[in-house]
Design a binder for these strands. Structure first.
Length: 727
RNA sequence: GGUCGCUUAGCUCAAUUGGCAGAGCGCCUCGUUCACAUCGAGGAGGUUGAUGGUUCAAAUCCAUCAGCGACCACCA
């Protein structure tokens, strides 16, 4: 059922925006289905974190909407798939803040209750976000929306994990991880932020065990010396050559530890001798591995000294440090204390200093996955726009360490790993009793023991969102009903039709965190890339290029702008005069400028509308008018051709710029003015020519400004652009 | 320390393979009878950060320098 839109004098987007949204939805223009006659064009929406409301960064989805609408008009079978991310730790953090406001703590509830509470919280946010996305006019196929915690999505995540486990690509290991003692969880390397901090560098004297001398070590963390299991020097350092293999007596701890030689030690820094604390430093851990050194953990996961810390037990790290320094000074082991500035790892959320702690965690072996991804990039089977990010991505892939995917939080997908408590069977012992099952098992698959426990941890969010392209499509292919195997999912026609997706469009800030993981997991689980093109956008900043933040008070609320100027204006403001892959400066001024353009487009429509209602004359079109029309048609053809060429290279900005200038300064200011008199005199040929070109221009503009263009088309021609597919 | 990006009009930024430097906002002059003042006509404003090189031709390619920014790594 078509909707009536009046070509009223005043340009008022509010008159029709909500009605158009409803109209598009009712007609199911953007509900995709398998259609063998058409080539699919698929974008999976990067799922927003379902823990807040829409901010201007989300408005960048407009890039995807423009592509979707453009290819819809080109006659492709388009699928733009929405969804939300449970955003494990991110959401957990927000939720804990809410709890605190209510004077509660996570300790007041048990695991199941807590999980349900967060689930309800997230569900409410999901609803709000959907409404907001619709307001911007996004042509998402809401009939297919998915959530990262849908039962079948979790099932697919489990399938991937099991496949990794079965192939030996995921392992459980005791390693030094980045641990936040405040948030009580570990992080991957990518989630640690470093900050400059003023501190001290202490030089400590370690006497040789045979009392023939001493070694000086420099450290920023004297308290960890209680957990030292060696002193390391560079094998080529002449000063220390004679000492390698000897032992020192560790002050305060009354233990003897060896002096080892390791190339990781820089002879030029400090004293050239390093204390080695494998349980509390990643570098030391690695040295310990090479020299078979024992591990002494002295700081616990609550951030306090534990029972191995002797008399210091119970102290916080800060107190521990003070006490150790005081004792060293008093007993004459402290040689020097000087000011020192260095970078300290911080929790990216709460800014607590990251404590490197040894912990058993699940790790994904990165290298075998990376090796399958790199050729795709090198052979350009996956293209990155702008291209400069390609090398950056390859560099990262080469540098990645094994990926810690365990998180010690309740909110997330629980790791389906179980440990047999009996371990009576050899096979059992081989894996330390660990086995992976898709559903809660009844017994250990190796020894049939019924005594086993499930790992308490949940997956890193990126482990599940890294599977998003294939997980969503597999889920939809099976209608979400049957839980199948990866091979079965892959053979479903829906999946085969829509996978791999066409474009992955996202912010360049999550190139390493997300895009690289999607490539690795997609290629691993499906055997094919999850997408052919990666389109990267930058950060949205304020009009002076400043980052938006609540404290600066320069945060722009996209919905407020939509309310004030219309969704078209906001959409175009994010495109106008920008460059792909660079940060985008947003200002109300720019939105106003685009609102003015929408107004211009509207008023051209009004002119034509009034022309249609003018009494027609039988007089022949004059030669001069005919000449102008000929020029107009020619110029339009050139513009149209150029427009499509720009689109092919995803150059959405230049394509828009081209339209903006042509519509305003050529079509309206020049041609329309030249033909105006003829139209008022009832020249039908002049009017029809203007109308034809105008509607063609609206069609090109539609992806950018779907509301005003569709409103006019419905009003002038009584047809939606989405009805006449395939022109 | 490594990688990458940026520096163009008063401000914020564009410029597809090297080919007459553009836009938005702001500024100046003029113009409201019939699409639009959320407008039209016209105008001022640039040695494209600096220096050198390649070329018939450089904002664009190369080298060096200066300033700004991002990401990654990290020395205890």
């Amino acid at each position: 059922m078509p909707i009536i839109i009046k070509m009223e004098k005043k340009f008022r987007p509010k008159q029709w925006e909500d009605r158009l949204i409803e109209f598009w939805e009712k007609n199911k223009y953007f509900q995709a289905q398998v259609n063998k006659d058409k080539e699919p064009f698929v974008i999976i929406l990067p799922p927003p974190n379902a823990n807040g409301s829409l901010h201007v960064g989300h408005a960048m989805y407009v890039y995807e909407d423009i592509l979707i609408r453009y290819y819809k008009l080109k006659g492709r079978e388009v699928l733009w798939l929405p969804g939300e991310d449970h955003a494990g730790f991110e959401t957990w953090f927000v939720f804990e803040q809410e709890l605190k406001k209510k004077g509660k703590s996570k300790l007041d509830f048990d695991r199941e209750v807590l999980y349900q509470m967060v689930y309800d919280f997230v569900n409410e946010k999901r609803g709000i976000m959907r409404k907001q996305l619709k307001k911007l006019g996004f042509a998402l196929d809401w009939s297919k929306s998915k959530f990262t915690l849908d039962q079948d999505i979790i099932h697919i995540v489990y399938l991937t994990f099991k496949k990794l486990f079965d192939q030996g690509l995921v392992y459980r290991g005791l390693r030094v991880v980045n641990y936040c003692v405040n948030c009580q969880t570990s992080f991957s390397d990518l989630e640690v932020e470093y900050e400059e901090e003023k501190s001290k560098l202490w030089t400590i004297r370690y006497p040789l065990a045979d009392r023939s001398g001493y070694v000086l070590v420099a450290t920023t963390r004297p308290e960890t010396m209680i957990g030292d299991t060696a002193v390391a020097v560079n094998p080529n350092d002449k000063r220390y050559k004679k000492l390698i293999g000897k032992k020192v007596s560790l002050p305060l701890a009354n233990r003897e530890i060896p002096i080892v030689a390791d190339l990781a030690v820089d002879p030029d820094f400090g004293t050239g001798a390093v204390k080695v604390t494998p349980a509390h430093s990643e570098v030391d851990w690695q040295i310990a591995q090479r020299h078979n050194l024992p591990l002494v953990q002295i700081i616990d996961f609550d951030g306090r000294a534990n029972e191995n810390a002797l008399k210091y037990q119970g102290l916080t790290v800060f107190e521990f440090r003070q006490a150790v320094v005081a004792d060293l000074r008093q007993q004459g082991f402290l040689v020097e204390e000087k000011d020192y500035q260095h970078r300290v790892g911080k929790c990216y959320k709460c800014k607590t200093t990251i404590e490197p702690l040894a912990k058993e965690q699940w790790f994904v072996k990165i290298k075998p996955l990376v090796d399958k991804v790199k050729p795709l990039l090198e052979r350009n089977e996956v293209k990155i726009y702008p291209n400069r990010f390609k090398q950056q991505l390859i560099n990262w892939l080469n540098k990645l360490y094994d990926w810690n995917i365990s998180r010690q939080i309740v909110w997330g997908i629980r790791i389906p790993a179980y440990q047999c408590q009996d371990q009576s069977n050899l096979e059992c012992k081989k894996h330390n009793g660990w086995f992976v099952e898709l559903t809660t098992p009844k017994k250990c698959p190796y020894c049939d023991s019924e005594k086993f426990i499930q790992d308490e941890d949940t997956f890193d969010t990126w482990f599940s969102s890294g599977q998003w392209p294939y997980a969503t499509l597999m889920s939809l292919a099976s209608n979400g009903k049957n839980l199948l195997s990866l091979e079965q999912y892959k053979s479903l026609s829906f999946f085969k039709y829509f996978y791999p997706t066409t474009v992955m469009e996202t912010g360049f800030d999550i190139l390493s965190r997300w895009v690289s993981r999607m490539l690795m997991l997609g290629v691993f689980a499906v055997g094919e890339t999850p997408f052919y093109n990666v389109l990267l956008h930058g950060l949205v900043r304020d009009q002076y290029g400043q980052k938006m933040s609540k404290s600066k008070g320069n945060v722009i609320d996209p919905l407020e702008l939509v309310d004030k100027y219309g969704a078209d204006a906001l959409r175009a403001a994010l495109i106008f005069n920008t460059k792909v892959g660079s940060d985008i400066n947003m200002s109300e001024e720019k939105v106003v400028a685009m609102r003015n353009f929408a107004n211009k487009v509207w008023n051209i429509g009004r002119f034509i509308y009034l022309g249609i209602n003018t009494e027609k004359s039988s007089a022949k079109t004059s030669e001069s008018v005919e000449a102008v029309i000929k020029d107009l048609l020619n110029e339009y053809k050139t513009v149209e051709k150029k427009f499509h060429q720009l689109f092919k290279r995803f150059n959405l900005t230049m394509a828009f710029d081209l339209l903006y200038n042509f519509i305003w300064h050529r079509f309206a200011d020049y041609y329309l003015e030249k033909l105006k008199d003829a139209v008022w005199q009832g020249d039908e040929y002049a009017l029809d020519s203007l109308k034809t070109v105008y509607l063609s221009l609206l069609r090109l503009l539609n992806p950018y400004m779907p509301f005003v263009t569709e409103a006019i088309a419905l009003s002038l021609s009584n047809k939606s652009f989405y009805d006449e597919i395939g022109s």
